[in-house]
Amino acid sequence: MTTLLATERIKLFTTRSPWWSIVAALGLTIGFAGLVALNHSEGRPLQVEHSQFGIQFGLVVVLVMAALAVTTEYRFSTIRATFQAVPNRSAVLVAKTAVVAVLAAVIGEIAAFGSWTVTRVIAGGPEMAIATGADVRMVAGVGLVYALAAVIAVAVGTLVRQSAGAISILLIWPLLVENLVQLIPGAGPHIHDWMPFVNAERFLNPPEFTTPPIGPWGSLAYLAGVAAALFAAAMVAVNRRDA
């Protein structure tokens, strides 16, 4: 497995896309935190959660990066070269997902702590201290969410095999579908409660917003469950299909 991890690491970092993603994700999230901090009014001191407003920017960049990590392999048929070198397709997919997820987690941690640091430097008061467990979760938890999002994106990319399609699905789903279902009279809010990215957001919310049904860590576990299910589907597909 270490060999495969090394292989996938080389593959990922010898193209431009992860570098772009790192720059875009960090630039957008930390930049947005800076914007928020620069414009805040003196009367209302910023809290830890205010430093994380831009975290969704990084999330969408991670989704795109992770999907591209696998769809470009199909696009350029390097997936065939990959399976030629390593016929154990499950192992390849596990290794690729692991590498992408680790990168996503690192991006998440840097983005979150970077945003927090920038906010603190520009407009930090005593409220900006990471004091409680919830504060830790809101900042350090970003990496976890990014990593799970990356797993979801790799799985969707593997299932769809096409950059345009995978990216459309991965962006339209969390940004639009999960919001619009709320509007369905009656059942809408309940469906909304069980949307994966809604749960991701709940995990990263301050305590007063981490509403039912399952609490922040339950939400994270739920997100992980969705990621695992999609990943399993991708595993089945990749082993069944012709490369």
Binding site: T3, K11, T14, T78, R80, A81
Partner: peptide, 26 residues
């Protein structure tokens, strides 16, 4: 095997292409 010479990522250098292949088989 060489089935199709275009099975290469266009933005990856020739050396990087061979490197990942080499790594995958130790």
């Amino acid at each position: 095997a060489l089935l199709d010479a275009k099975w290469v990522h266009p933005n990856r250098s020739a050396r990087a292409h061979l490197s990942w292949l080499a790594t995958s088989n130790k």
